[in-house]
Simulated assay, not measured.
Amino acid sequence: MALGIRVFEFLPKEGTPYPFVVMGDTHLLPQATKTHLYGRCTTTLHLWADPNNRKQVSDMIGNIMAEASRIKQIERTQWSMIISESDSQILKDNSTSESLYHGLLHLYFRFL
Rank of each mutant, 00 (worst) to 15 (best):
M1H: 04
D93E: 11
L28G: 00
N94G: 06
I90S: 12
N53S: 07
A49C: 09
R6F: 04
H27V: 10
L112T: 08
L45W: 14
S88T: 03
Q56K: 09
T96P: 04
L112W: 11
F20T: 07
A49I: 05
F109H: 02
R110M: 03
L28E: 10
I83S: 04
I61P: 02
L91C: 05
A2K: 15
M23Y: 01
V22P: 06
R54W: 06
Q78F: 12
A32W: 08
G24T: 01
K13N: 12
A32P: 10
L29P: 00
M81G: 00
M1K: 00
S86G: 03
S95N: 01
E67P: 10
S80P: 00
G24H: 09
R54N: 06
I71P: 13
I61F: 00
I64H: 08
I61E: 00
L29Q: 07
W48F: 14
I71N: 08
G24R: 15
N94Q: 15
R6E: 13
T26Q: 02
P19H: 09
F111V: 00
F109W: 01
A66E: 13
H106D: 10
K72N: 11
T43Y: 06
V7M: 03
S99A: 10
K34I: 12
G39F: 07
L100P: 06
F20D: 09
N94S: 07
G4I: 01
R54G: 01
I61V: 05
Y18I: 04
R76S: 09
A49F: 04
E98V: 15
G103D: 10
T96K: 12
M23I: 09
Q31K: 06
R54A: 03
Y38R: 14
E14L: 15
W79A: 02
S95A: 13
E67I: 00
K55E: 06
V57C: 00
C41V: 08
P30N: 10
V57S: 01
A2V: 09
R6K: 08
T42F: 05
T44I: 05
F20Q: 14
M60F: 03
T16K: 07
G15E: 06
S58Y: 04
K55C: 13
T35D: 14
M60N: 03
D59Q: 04
E9R: 04
V7P: 08
P30E: 05
N53M: 03
T16L: 09
I64V: 12
L45E: 15
I74P: 09
S97T: 10
G62T: 00
I90W: 09
S97M: 11
S69I: 15
F10E: 14
G15V: 11
L11K: 06
T43W: 07
I83A: 04
D25N: 03
R40P: 01
F109T: 00
S99W: 13
L45H: 07
A66N: 06
R110C: 04
F10D: 15
S99Q: 08
I74H: 05
V57R: 02
T44E: 14
I74T: 05
V21T: 02
I83V: 14
M65Q: 09
M60Y: 02
Y18D: 13
Y18V: 08
E14D: 15
P17F: 04
Q89W: 03
F111I: 02
M65A: 08
T16N: 08
P19A: 11
H46A: 11
I90P: 15
A32C: 07
Q89G: 02
